[in-house]
Design a protein around this nucleic acid. Sequence first.
DNA 1: TCTAATAATTAGTTTGACTAACTAATTAAG
DNA 2: CTTAATTAGTTAGTCAAACTAATTATTAGA
Lengths: 144, 144
Amino acid sequence: MSRYDPALEVADALHSACIRILRRVRTADEETGLSAPKLSALSVLVFGGPMNLTRLARAEQVTSPTMSKLVGDLEAEGLVAKRADREDKRGVRIEVTAKGKALFDAGRRARLTLLRGKLAKLPKEEREKLRAAAALMLRVAAAD
Amino acid sequence: MSRYDPALEVADALHSACIRILRRVRTADEETGLSAPKLSALSVLVFGGPMNLTRLARAEQVTSPTMSKLVGDLEAEGLVAKRADREDKRGVRIEVTAKGKALFDAGRRARLTLLRGKLAKLPKEEREKLRAAAALMLRVAAAD
DNA sequence: TCTAATAATTAGTTTGACTAACTAATTAAG
DNA sequence: CTTAATTAGTTAGTCAAACTAATTATTAGA
C-alpha cells in the first residue's frame, strides 16, 4: 500500500497537468499545416540560429537519418535552406528562410494566443502563480 | 512591435515549461518497453475501468480504427482482454489484465519516480506552489 | 600516409496515425 | 413490422516519423 508521499503526489499532479495543457495547446497547430516535429525543428533553428544536421538532431533527440529526412522535407517546402559548410566540407549549414520564419511565427502565435486567451481570464494573482511555477518547472526539468 | 502582455508572457513560459517537463519525464518510459500510446491507453483503462472501444478512442482523441489496432496489439501482448458486451451485441468490453496492470504500474512508477526525485529536492513551499499550479493548469486546460 | 572517426545520406523496417469501405447490431419512422 | 438510418467495431491501404544498417565523403590522428 502506498504511504503518504507529497513529492510523489505533486509529481503525479504536475505530470497530468502538463499533458493536458500541451494536448490542448496543440490543437492550434492545425492552422499552420506544420507537423509537431517540423514546428519543433524550426523552433530550434529560429532560437539557436543556423547549425549543422548533427547538432539539430541532438537538440531534437532524434537520429541523424530522421533529421536528414525532416530537413529535406522542410527544404522542399522552402522553409529552411542548406548551405555548404566552408570549414567542414562534410557538413551542411541549415538555416531558416524568411518564409520559414514567417510560418514559424504564425504557428507559435497561434499556440500562444490560444493559451493566452485562457490565462487572460484568470485573476492576476493566479496568473502570477503560474508564471512563478513555470520558472520552477524549468529548473526541475533541467536538474541533474 | 509587441507591447507588454502579461498573459502572453505567462503563456509562453508555461508552454515551454510543460514541453521540457514532459520531454524529461518520458525518458523513463524505455524501461517498460511500452510505447507512449500504449501506456496512455492502459492508463485510461486502469483509472476509468473497463469500457468499450469508442469511449476509449474518444478519451485518447484518436479514431476508432486507430484504437482498434492498438487494443488488438495490447491484447496480443496479454495486457488487455476483450469481452462481449451482453447489453449491446455490437460492442466489446475492454479490460486490463493482471499482467497489464502490473506493467502499467511499473511504467507509471518509473515516470513518477523520476519526477518525484527532482521534486523531493525542492523546499516544501516550492513543491506546494507546484501542487497549486498543477490544479490551476488543469482548470486552464479544461476551460471552454 | 594510412586508418579511424565523423557528417550526412540512402535503403529498408516498424509504429501509430489517418480515411474509406465494410459487417453486424440497434434505434427510429412509416 | 419492415425499412431506413445510425452506431460499434474491424479490415485494408496510405502516410509521417521514428529506428537500424550500410554507404559516401571528408577530416583528423598515430
